[in-house]
Amino acid sequence: MSVLKVRNLKKCYGNVRAVDGVSFTVEERQIVALLGPNGAGKTTTIEIIEGLRKKDEGEIFYFGRKVEFIDREIKRMLGVQLQKSAFLDNLTVKETLELFAGLYGISLKASQLGELVEMFMLQEKMNSRVKTLSGGQMQRLALAVALVNDPKVVFLDEPTTGLDPQARRHVWQIVRKLVEEGKTVLLTTHYMEEAEELADYVLIMDHGKIIAEGTVDNLIKMLNMDSYLEFVVEKPAVFLERMPGARMLNGERITVPTKKVEDDVQKIFALAKNEGLSVENLVVRRPNLEDVFLSLTGRHLRD
């Protein structure tokens, strides 16, 4: 059964179409990633579904039931981590978790509280006031709050932004564990590694629309490329002109799609020799979601 179904969702701010006819379905126990650059409309989409923003048009179905607005019954089943989290400044981490449990009509047992703070590595900060937390700790508290009501569906809006790589991997583990426990997760991210690592299904968004969707493998197969070559040269213009499909990556590396790795590597070195240039840091890698986005929009995810 589908947990969430969204049909032709639209939202405008003045003349700007933030969400422009978005439709998708989230199945039970799935991790669905809404991937796109900043300003693509991911947050607006997820906030409409959570009940934070009103839709202009479209239909939302939760567990097969069409909902015009997100009522209390639905809210009880949702766990939400907002992109920018803020809580009452002068409460401690423990009190904040108790507050939110109370708002869901739940009384947290000491063992449940302990489990939550341990899960998000907040044990040492249990009695610290919210206003003293660092960005990463705040993000982890927001994630803990999202799970305080043992939700069926969890919305995570850029859950690992601001976290260090170790904490990011830790969050990924938790997300996988949530699905093992029977929960469904819809997350937004602009990290393609995060989507690749976690998502069963990826929705790629740009300019308020879903421009591609599918499993990570299927999306990559759409590129019809075996590999990508990446390297650094002093004068990239020559390579961008003469190598088909060549693009700049992060303003310093050249990336070239290839089906014949050996031939194209020889071609790169030959071109470099002719121009009197040296090729550095040449790597051969598999295609990824960044390449998918690049091929669909001509832009990078973090542009």
């Binding site: 009880r76 809580f87 869901y104 927001a142």
Partner: peptide, 9 residues
């Protein structure tokens, strides 16, 4: 902070 509270029932 109020936005998160709005999302509770």
């Amino acid at each position: 902070a109020l936005r998160r509270i709005i999302l509770t029932p």
